[in-house]
Structures are given as C-alpha cells and as structure tokens.
C-alpha cells in the first residue's frame, strides 16, 4: 500500500505537483495517467525519496521510504530505462544492486531469465536497444521479489510482443497480491491493464476511480442518425418521447435507445436514413476531455491556408 498525502513539489517558479492525495492498493494494477509534464515522474521520484517534497508525505506500508532497511525487497521501481551505467554489463548492474540489499546473487540469473536477457547478460548495456534497456530496468525492479512495484512508462520502446508481455506481467504480479503502480499517457493501454485509475493534470488530481467506473461514466454509447429528412425525423423521434441531440455535420445522436427501435420507427414513418450506427465514445476521448484544461504542451497543427504563414505571405 502506498499512501500519498498532500504531496507538492515546486521547482523554482513551477509547481510540478500540487497537493496530491491518493492511495495505491495491493492486489490490483493502478494506472497513473496524465499528459506530458503532468508530474507523474516527479510524483514517482518523491515516492522513492529521490526528490524531496515541498509539502506533504509518502508512506509505504506506513513507513517512509528512507526507513526501509532493504528497500529492493519491498519496492521495485523502473523509473527510466537509461538509469544505469552503460559501461557495466547487465549481469554486473543487477549484481551490484542485489548486493546492496543482501539479495542472493542467484536472483540475478533468475530475473535475467524472466525478462529474457540471459543471452546478453555479459554484454555492456551501452549497446542495448531501448526495449532491452527497459527489460533490464524491469529485471532490476523484480530483483528483490518486492510486494510493491512501480513502473514509469514501462511499455516505452517495447515491441508489440514486449508490450503484451509487460501487460501480462503486471496483471500476474497484481494477482499475486502485490501493489502495482504504473504510469502511462495512453488511456487505451491502461484500459487493458489497470483496475484502478489515478489521473493528474498540471500536478493536480483530476480523477481517482476504478477502471470499471471510469468506463461506465465515460464510455457513452449512443446511436448516430443521418437523414435527408432531418426535420421530420426529429419530430417523429420527439413524438415518440426520445431525446435527440443535434451533432455536427447534419447528424443526430440518440442516447439509450437501441438502433433497431430507431430504424423501425423511421420505417413506420417512411423516412429515408443515410446512416444508423451504434457508437461508443472512446476512453481516449474521455481522457482527453478530462485533461483538456490541463495540457501544458500543446502541439500546433500546421496552419491551414488563409491563416498564419499563408495570409502573411499573401500580403507581401
């Protein structure tokens, strides 16, 4: 169990983490979501006592991280795949970590096998690909066979097979009763792995909910209708007591009524339909809406003609 209480972190002028309070419970995978720069990595660094909080505290099973006597057997963390000395072999990297916590050296071979790096154990990690580095970082997190696992964007740089492996790994770790806390930008990825969600934006807590609840409230299912006789269709639906929302592009959207019923209703009134399609709002859209107000680093799309460069160019 990880408890975060009133956690804040200020870097100069910038408030990177702003009064976060939440808990990460054992036995489930907790997804930690937020757009770029939301403060996920900063929060994780503070959980591990690498960065000192400006305010608030983190407790791991009631203890401060610094008070853990053999932390690797308690908490395994993957922060950054490149948080290692590239000149050292994978084996020696893990060996020095194991030794610092009094973990038997035999565990090194075991975790290397788990992540599939046995063949390159004696190679210097400098030459590793991003995905291999990620696997080595995961091996380090598993070294002490800890009850709490923390992964900062673990699927970064992994191939589809690797992503699949990581998903199953996290689920099975949680199924064994461990606490699994994993950050990501990708709602779709989390929907597949996480049981619980903590969403932050600009350092503030936006949501702390179970995945099932999040899906229920955010994945609105509705039926989209398009007809050349839109006005009549509207009236018909209205008379039938069905609420209609006019969406863009001349389409109508209806919540909570099956598409079959709507089709039959239109047929009865001899209305032509160009579209009758059940829709499901994606979780990704829901996530983007949730964090819309707190996205710091917006990309700007190429200016359309008549705007930006185009218009100034014309005046010359």
């Amino acid at each position: 169990m990880i408890e975060v209480a009133g956690l804040s972190k200020r870097y100069g002028q910038k408030l990177a983490v702003d009064d976060l309070t939440f808990q990460v419970r054992p036995g489930i995978v907790t997804g930690f979501l937020g757009p770029n720069g939301a403060g996920k990595s900063t929060t994780m660094r503070m959980m591990l006592d690498l960065d000192r909080p400006t305010a608030g505290a983190v407790r791991i099973d009631g203890k401060r991280y610094t008070d853990l006597k053999d932390p690797l057997t308690y908490v395994g963390a993957l922060l950054d795949a490149k948080a290692l000395h590239g000149g050292r072999s994978a084996y020696n990297h893990l060996l020095c970590l194991a030794q610092s916590n009094g973990i038997p050296a035999s565990r090194v071979g075991e975790v290397l096998d788990t992540v599939g790096l046995t063949a390159v154990a004696k190679k210097r990690s400098k030459g590793f690909s991003l995905g291999m580095g990620q696997r080595l970082g995961i091996a380090g997190a598993l070294l002490g066979d800890p009850q709490i696992l923390m992964f900062d964007e673990p699927v970064n740089g992994l191939d589809p097979e690797g992503i699949h492996w990581i998903r199953n790994l996290m689920k099975s770790l949680a199924a064994q009763g461990r606490t699994v806390f994993v950050s990501s930008h990708l709602m779709s990825e989390m929907a597949l792995t996480a049981d619980h969600l903590v969403v932050i934006g600009q350092g503030r807590l936006l949501a702390d909910t179970s995945m099932a609840d999040f899906i229920r409230t955010n994945s609105r299912s509705y039926v989209r209708l398009r007809s050349p006789q839109q006005e009549r269709l509207r009236d018909v639906l209205h008379q039938a007591g069905i609420t209609v929302v006019t969406a863009g592009n001349g389409t109508l959207e209806v919540d909570g009524v099956a598409s079959e019923q709507l089709g039959e209703l239109a047929a009865q009134h001899q209305l032509v339909l160009h579209e009758l399609s059940p829709q499901q709002a994606s979780l990704e859209e829901a996530f983007m809406q949730l964090t819309a107000g707190s996205v710091e680093y917006h990309a700007h799309s190429e200016p359309a003609s008549g705007q930006g460069w185009g218009s100034t160019g014309g005046e010359n």
């Binding site: 169990m1 057997t73 050292r88 030794q99 610092s100 916590n101 009094g102 002490g144 009850q147 606490t179």
Partner: peptide, 27 residues
C-alpha cells in the same frame, strides 16, 4: 499482500561495500 520466498535480511554497510566493489571493478 504478497510475501516473497526470497530470504530477507537487513542491509548493512557491508552490503553497500560489496555493491560498490562490484561497481568499481566492473567499469
């Protein structure tokens, strides 16, 4: 919650020395 089958004991300065020795000899 999860309990590890890996034998545990408290880490000491001796463990840190062993770790640093591995580090310095492996670069």
């Amino acid at each position: 919650g999860y309990v590890s089958p890996v034998p545990l004991r408290r880490a000491t300065l001796k463990d840190a020395l062993a770790s640093e020795w591995t580090k310095i000899r492996s670069v």
